[in-house]
Design a protein around this nucleic acid. Structure first.
Lengths: 211, 211
DNA sequence: GGGCAGAGTCAACGTTCGCTCACCTCGTCA
DNA sequence: TGACGAGGTGAGCGAACGTTGACTCTGCCC
C-alpha cells in the first residue's frame, strides 16, 4: 500500500486510536490488530513505538489523565465563597469533565482487575486532585468555624465518590428511571444537602438560597 | 481419569467456580478452559450445561445477585426511627454486603462494556432495592415534615451511589492514604452529615448524638 | 435384557491473539 | 556518495481462544 504522506506524529495518532478503542471495548476486548487497522499501519509498526500492549495501555491512561489540569482548574477557586460554593465547584468540574471527555469516563469504569496499575493511575490522576482540594478547603473552614467538626478526609472522599458515581452511572439512571436527569438538577439538589450538613448553623450559607 | 463420585449438582459447582474466576479475572480474562479445569471437568462438559460463555456469565451474575434478599432485609426497618437511622441502615447493609461477598463487589466493578447486560443486571438487582427503599422512606418523611423539600429520587440515588463508591474503592483508599479506614468510621462521619442536610430543623435528629 | 437419555471425555476445528523476523524505504549527515 | 537509523511492510510464529462432533459410560424405565 502506498504511504501517500507519512504523518509526522504517528505515535500520537496511534495513542488516539488506542484510547478510543480501549475505552470502547476494554483492555482484553481491544486487539492490537484493531488499533493498527484504525491507525492505518500494521501491527509491527505499533511495536516500533511501544514495548507491548500493556505499556501502550498504560500510556493511554497516563496521556488521557494528564490531558486535564484538574488541580490547576480548581486552584482558581481556592479560599473563595462558602462551603456550598466549594462543593458546587468540585461537582461542576467533575460532571463537566465527564461530559467533555466520555472516553475518560469509560476508561474509569472499564479498568479491569488485571490492569490494576491502570486503575491506580486513573485514581491518582483524576480523583486525588479533587479530594486534596476539598480536604484543604474543608480543613480551613473548619478552623474558621464555618464547618462543623468532621473528618475532612473521609468527608471529601465520600463527596467526590458520590459525584463520580453519579457521572459514571448516568447512563444507568436513564435506563431504569426512564427520564434523563440533568447534571445541574442533581447538583442543585445534592450540594445544598451536603453543605447544610457540613455547616455549623444548620442554615446552608450566607449565599443566595433562591433556587 | 476416574470419576470417583459423580456430584449431584455439577451445574451448581460450575457456576460457583465460574463466579469466583469471573470476579477475579473479568469476563475476557477468564477462559472456559480455566473454569473447566477448576470444576474438574472438561470444557465440553460445560457446554452440556450452558449455551456458551456469555450465557454462563449472565447466569453467574444473576445467581450472585439473587443470593441476597436486599429488599427483604430492608423491609424490617420500614418506617422505624429517624431519617438518620434509615440512612444508617442502608449504609450498614451495603458495606456489610460488600464485606460478606467480595466476589459481588469485584463483579460490580468489573462488568465490562461488552457485557452491558451483566452491568444492568447487577444495577437492577443490587442497587435498585436500596434506592427504592430509600425513596419510599424519604418521601414518607417529607410528607410528615421531618425532611426538607428535596427530590427523593435524586437524593436516594446519590446517597446509595456514595456508599457504593465507598465500598467499591475501599482498596484504593488504603493504597493512597496508607491508613485503613474502618467502614463504621466512615458511616459515623457521613451519615450524620447527610441526615443533618436532609432534616428540617438543622439539628440531626432527636436520637443520640454522642459519638 | 434392551433401548434410551443424561453426563462426560477426547480430539480437534477454525479463528484470533500478542508478538517477531527479515526486509525495504526514506531523509540526514559526515 | 554512501553509511545509517528511524519508521514502515508482509509473512508468519506459537499459543490460546470458544466451540463442536463422535464417542463412551451409567443409571433408569419398559
Amino acid at each position: 500500500m502506498a504511504p501517500e504522506t507519512r504523518p509526522a506524529n504517528r505515535r500520537g495518532e496511534i495513542l488516539d486510536h488506542a484510547s478510543r478503542l480501549f475505552s470502547a471495548h476494554g483492555y482484553d476486548g481491544t486487539a492490537i490488530r484493531l488499533i493498527a487497522r484504525a491507525s492505518g499501519v500494521t501491527e509491527a509498526a505499533i511495536y516500533r513505538h511501544f514495548d507491548g500492549k500493556a505499556q501502550l495501555y498504560d500510556e493511554v491512561i497516563r496521556a488521557k489523565a494528564r490531558e486535564h489540569d484538574i488541580a490547576g482548574d480548581l486552584a482558581a477557586s481556592r479560599g473563595h465563597g462558602s462551603v456550598e460554593d466549594i462543593l458546587r465547584v468540585v461537582a461542576n468540574h467533575v460532571l463537566s469533565l465527564a461530559r467533555r471527555d466520555p472516553e475518560l469516563v469509560r476508561l474509569m469504569s472499564n479498568s479491569s482487575l488485571e490492569n490494576d496499575q491502570g486503575r491506580a493511575t486513573i485514581f491518582r490522576e483524576v480523583r486525588i486532585p479533587y479530594i486534596e482540594f476539598l480536604v484543604e478547603e474543608i480543613t480551613r473552614r473548619m478552623a474558621a468555624g464555618e464547618v462543623r467538626r468532621i473528618d475532612p478526609v473521609i468527608t471529601s472522599r465520600c463527596f467526590v465518590g458520590m459525584v463520580m458515581d453519579c457521572a459514571l452511572n448516568a447512563g444507568m439512571w436513564s435506563r431504569f428511571a426512564g427520564v434523563e436527569v440533568d447534571a445541574q438538577t442533581v447538583i442543585c439538589n445534592n450540594v445544598p444537602i451536603f453543605a447544610r450538613g457540613l455547616t455549623n448553623d444548620g442554615v446552608a450559607s450566607p449565599s443566595n438560597d433562591g433556587v
